[in-house]
Structure formats: C-alpha cells, structure tokens
Design a binder for these strands. Structure first.
Length: 611
RNA sequence: GGUCCGCUAGCUCAGCUGGAUAGAGCAACUGCCUUCUAAGCAGUAGGUCUUAGGUUCGAAUCCUAAGCGGAUCACCA
C-alpha cells in the first residue's frame, strides 16, 4: 500500500526520464509489431556494456515466445520501431538477442539541462511519512569504540538518506544508563578512585568511567581466582565474588532510590555524557530525541497485561509470562519474569509504544548489531501480533561486527579500538599526508586544521560506510586506512578539483550558471558517460533508502568521481576555443561537484573547496 | 544440535529482482606533471565466483545438499 502512495507522489518530479520513454516505446512496439500487450514492469533496460556501442540495452530473449521469431529478428524490428518513433533513440545495433540503443546528442543535452536547472536535485518530494531512526544507543559505563563508529555513521547516514527520500525523520538515541554494568563502574570507582574526576585526572569523562569498568573486571577476576584457590568451583566463584555481590547490592539500592547511590550515578553519568557529546560532535552525528533507559525500564508491563487479555501471551505456573512464536518458526520467549520484573524485551515493547505515542511514526528503524537479530525478530512479531499500527513499519537495520585481526573486541578486557583515538589518528595521518604532498600552501593554520579534520573523518566514514552494512568487516589497525583509490579523500579530491575550476571560471567571467544546452553540436563520450551517471543520482538515493544502505550511495559517488576524473583528463576546459563548449564543460563540472557534495552529505561526509 | 548470516583476484570489496568476455581499489609492473590540483589518468598482470547437483535458451545471481567461518538459541542487556 505504502509503495503505491509513494510512487504517485514521486512521479511528477522525475524531470524527464528517457528510460521510461524508451520502455513505453518498447511496449508500443510489441503492440504494433507483435500484436501483444506487455505491462511496463515486464520491460527493463540495462546499461550497455562498455565494449558495445550504445547506452541502454534491451534483452529480447524473454520475449521470443511473443515475437515467434529469432532473437536477431525480434531485436531488429523493435530497434527499427524505436528509431522511428522514440525521439531519444538515434540508432541501434543488435548482438545476438541484445538490442543496444544509441541516444542522440540532444537527449544528453536535454537531460543535463533539466537536471542542471533543478534546484532540488537530489531531494525527492515529501511523501508524508514519518520515520524514526534509532541509533548509537551507548552504555554509559565506557567510552565509544570502533563498533559504535560503524553504528553511528550508519544511523546518521540512513537518516539523511531517508530525508532525501522525502520522509520526515526523527533521529533517536536510546541511552542505556542503568543496570549492573553501570554499577560495576561505580563500585570500582568507589573502591579505587580516591575521588578522581575528569578535571583532576585530565581524562575525558567517558574514558574515566571506562577505566573503572576495566578495573572492576580485573578485581573480579582476581577474586574469582582466590575463591577457586579456596576450593570453590569456577561457577560458584563467579557468583560469590564479593565485588560482584557489591555491584548487585548497588543495583538494588539504585532501584530503591538510595540517595548516595543515585547521586554517584548522576555524577558519573554526567561525566560520561560530557565525553559522549564531544565524541558525537567530532563524529558529526546528532539526535532529535534522547530516551534514557532509567526512564523507560519499567515500561511494557501494561503491554504484558494487554497481551494476556488478547491471548497473544500466556502464563506459566510460576507466574512468568511467555509468547509462543513456534508457529512463526521461532521459539517460546519470556516476556515477564515470574517475580513480575521486566526483561530486555519487556522494556523494548514499552519503548516501541512510547516512540509511536511521541511521534506517530509510520516506520521505525533500529540500527543495532546483528547479534541481536533474534531479539528484534521476536519483538517485531509480538508488536505485529498485538496489532500495532506501526507494526509493519518496524525494521531492524542489522549490521555486522567490525572485527580486529586479533579477534572480537571486548571492552572489559581493553581489547578495543577506541573511537576517540581512532578519529585522532585518522586526522593526524591526514595532516601528515597533506604536508607530505605539499598541499597546504596558502592555508591559514585554522584552515589547515579544518581540512585535516574533513579528510581524516572523511576517510574513516567512507571506509566504514562503503561496505554493505549487513556484512561483517575486518579492520586492521596496522594497515592504516587509505587515502587513494576507493576512499573518501579520492572523492573529496575530485570535488576540490572542480571547486578550483569554478573559481577560475568565475575569475574569467565564464557564464555557466544559465547554461541551457543550446549551441552544442557534439557530446563527447566522456561527457555523455558523466551525464548518464548524474542522471542516476536520484535513482540511487531511492535505492539506498529502500535498502537502508549507504554503501549503494558510496559506490555510486566513487563511480561518479572516477568518471569525472576521466573527463578531466580527457577534455580541456579553459583551452577550449568554442565558448559554448567551454561553458558546457564548466556547467557539467559544477553539477558534478554539487552532486558529489550532496551525496557525500548523505553519508555525513564533508567536502573541501581546496586540498 | 536448531535457527540465521557470510564465502567472488594475494588483500579489501562491487556485482545477487537470472543476460553478452565476472568488475573496482590496494599491493606488483609500464607509461603520463612547460594545458584547468599526479590524493589523478592510461595500461599490463592477476579468477575452477567454496564444492556437488538441479531449474533454463542462459546461473556468481534462483533451488537442494555439503564444506568452511561467524552469530544466536538466558527468568543478561
């Protein structure tokens, strides 16, 4: 249902779609030549492979039953028809069952001129739908690490991509600020810190909390060893370690609103938030709404009641409440403990309702690692069974782990790549690299610093976003992230190159802003290839939105930058004598720069004017 | 063991709603800075698309099975 509405709104804006014109032409060709009605969605065009002449290729094999003749005949007849009746088709050639269509020069110029004149290129019109993207969702007992970077960059980018697709987007952060893990940091702080503060230690607040989380684990392990030496089994020792009991006691006190504990909790969380804010700022991500689990952890119990009434849930003898998802191919799953307390999914059910009550969202995206696939599978099935209006719009954007060559990252054991460290390292590398290339002449120190920041973070974000989110990825800290090839800086460089051209064009007084496609006789191959790609931009935005996949855009932007660099090496601009062609090439450059800038902004990556 | 995910060049990845001779980047090698930024461009070399069956005019892509790797299957979050 939603898809249809979406199309209806979207159609008028597609400025001119030659692809659709050709497809309609093919439909007519089948009616006229073979006396057969095909629906439009049965017909599809593919880009022609580089080694053949043409732009679009129509594969006729599937239609031989209709045409009742050889592939060559079928293709030739359709080709003739299109050449006669479709304005954009200048010529065609047939290779076996492949009909390659050559577009005429004017259609290239028309496409270009229309995109060029569109101030909203890259922004699809509002579709009237609201979506929430929940991402980041940190624990407040330790600093952010590499895995969080992937999460944050993904979440931010998907939110921006959905905006470009016409959604009204709310970015949400669900902060896990309570629970036993927080108490662990707090216990260790009480024991070992001697009142240390971020100010006194010079540590960022989140790193300070993380330090005590690690200390807790060290002490815990030590106590387990001691208990085992006294004859306890490992299992017993893990349960009986005094420091763990202390943390559990602290959690009970916290839940009972013990003044001293709550005040320590507030103090430490405050430090952590200051630290997170700094990290988020550097990452360039933000949120419209923050939920705290300390406020939401009791939610969901009324939903359990509702579910029991609706017989979606059932009660076992000990009073615990379950949902039976075996008909859906899952298991029975606990939704409320026998003692009436919540589990993870209880509170997630409550939060789902809360989000809907707050924002009346049509869709809700959860950016959470794939180790929680099962949890979200269960959660969504429950909400759908309960008949929630937003049920069909729930989506788990499940991404793979970022692995290190040494294995899985564990905060407790300190085997993590810290987010702040990594960002700093990337910026330092960018600085060293830029200086080595001698590219900072004429930069003030402030401008240089800004550039390093743009390049370092651009490299990092692109590195994490260019890979399909659902795939796990390997990060080797020894091999530094590249600045050449399929990288953020490569695309940023292409933009800076064009910016330089535009500065020069302005200096020379070239009028390219009003270019309308007139006065050009011939469109070169590297120009039409570029126009072809530019014409694809909105299609890629749509696809990236439908698939929740920034990697589609990343790949596209790399292709676009590469195509531009080919054009740049191929054809002169300011040495071109014909002023119309000169203006055309500057305009083409300007549109490419605009597209790169817009596309990169959807990845959360800034783009420099000079580098 | 059940369920889910992945496996494409030495490495990192595209391609997966079936279409032509499977593409990029890195690393290696060869050219190109007295024309607009060489973080670039052009080229060489590198592949039994994990394996075995199947579906069909056609399979990296769809189906089945196996292998390898990972995740998950808590009255943890």
């Amino acid at each position: 249902m939603r898809t249809f509405a979406f199309f209806a709104v979207k159609k008028p804006v597609i400025i001119m779609n030659i692809q659709e014109n050709i497809i309609q032409g093919i439909q007519l060709a089948f009616q006229n030549i073979f006396n057969h009605d095909l629906s439009l969605d049965q017909i599809s065009l593919a880009p022609t492979r580089k080694e053949f002449e043409g732009t679009y290729t129509f594969v006729v094999f599937p239609f031989l039953k209709v045409s009742r003749t050889t592939p060559e005949n079928t293709a030739n007849q359709i080709g003739e028809y299109l050449k006669e009746n479709v304005a954009e088709v200048a010529d065609f050639n047939v290779v076996k069952g492949f009909l390659n269509l050559v577009l005429n020069e004017n259609s290239w110029l028309d496409i270009f001129a229309k995109i060029y004149a569109n101030p909203n290129f890259g922004q699809l019109p509002a579709n009237g739908q609201k979506v929430m993207v929940e991402y980041s969702s940190p624990n407040t007992n330790k600093p952010l690490h590499l895995g969080h970077l992937r999460n944050n960059f993904l979440g931010y980018s998907v939110a921006e991509i959905l905006k470009a697709n016409g959604y009204e987007v709310t970015k949400a952060n669900l902060v896990n600020d309570r629970g036993i893990h927080i108490c662990k940091s707090m216990v260790a702080y009480q024991r070992f810190a001697n009142g240390e503060t971020p100010e006194s230690s010079g540590l960022k607040g989140d790193h300070l909390a993380g330090k005590y989380y690690v200390l807790f684990d060290q002490e815990y392990k030590k106590q387990i060893k001691e208990l085992m030496a006294e004859g306890q089994t490992e299992e017993e020792a893990k349960k009986n370690a005094p420091i763990l009991l202390e943390a559990q006691e602290m959690l009970r006190k916290w839940e009972a609103n013990d003044e001293a504990i709550v005040s320590l909790w507030k103090q430490m969380n405050g430090w952590v938030y200051e630290g997170f804010d700094a990290s988020y700022k550097r990452m360039g991500v933000d949120f419209d709404k923050t939920y705290y689990e300390s406020n939401t952890y009791l939610l969901g119990k009324d939903i359990v009641e509702e579910g029991l009434k609706k017989e979606v849930f059932f009660k076992k003898d000990n009073g615990s409440v379950w949902v039976d998802l075996t008909p859906e191919g899952l298991d029975e799953k606990l939704v409320l403990r026998g003692d009436g307390t919540s589990v993870y999914i209880t509170q997630d059910m409550g939060t789902a309702d809360l989000k809907y009550d707050d924002f009346k969202i049509d869709k809700s995206v959860y950016v959470v690692g794939n180790e929680q696939d099962y949890h979200f599978d269960v959660l969504f099935k429950i909400m759908q069974k309960l008949g929630r209006p937003y049920g069909p719009g729930l989506y788990h954007l499940s991404y793979g782990m970022v692995d290190l060559p040494t294995g899985k990252m564990k905060s407790r054991e300190g085997t993590v790549v810290d987010a702040d460290d990594l960002m700093q390292e990337m910026v330092d590398t960018a600085a060293a690299h830029t200086k080595e290339l001698g590219k900072i002449e004429g930069f003030t120190p402030e401008q240089a610093t800004e550039l390093y920041e743009i390049l370092g973070l651009g490299a990092l974000k692109y590195f994490l976003l260019k890979v399909d989110p659902k795939k796990r990825m390997l990060f080797n800290p020894q091999e530094s992230i590249e600045f050449q090839g399929n990288t953020g800086p490569f695309i940023q460089y292409s933009h800076a190159r064009i910016a330089s051209i535009l500065r020069k064009a302005d200096q020379l007084g070239v009028d390219y802003t009003n270019f309308d496609g007139k006065g050009i006789e011939k469109v070169e191959e590297s120009e039409s290839s570029l126009i072809f790609l530019l014409n694809d931009f909105e299609k890629k935005i749509k696809q990236a939105g439908d698939d929740y996949s920034p990697s589609i855009l990343a790949q596209y932007l790399f292709d676009l930058a590469k195509e531009y660099n080919r054009f740049y090496a191929d054809l002169p601009i300011f040495n071109e004598n014909d002023p119309a062609i000169l203006a055309f090439r500057v305009a083409l450059s300007a549109l490419t720069a605009k597209t790169i800038k817009k596309g990169m902004s959807l990845l959360g990556i800034a783009v420099p004017e000079r580098m």
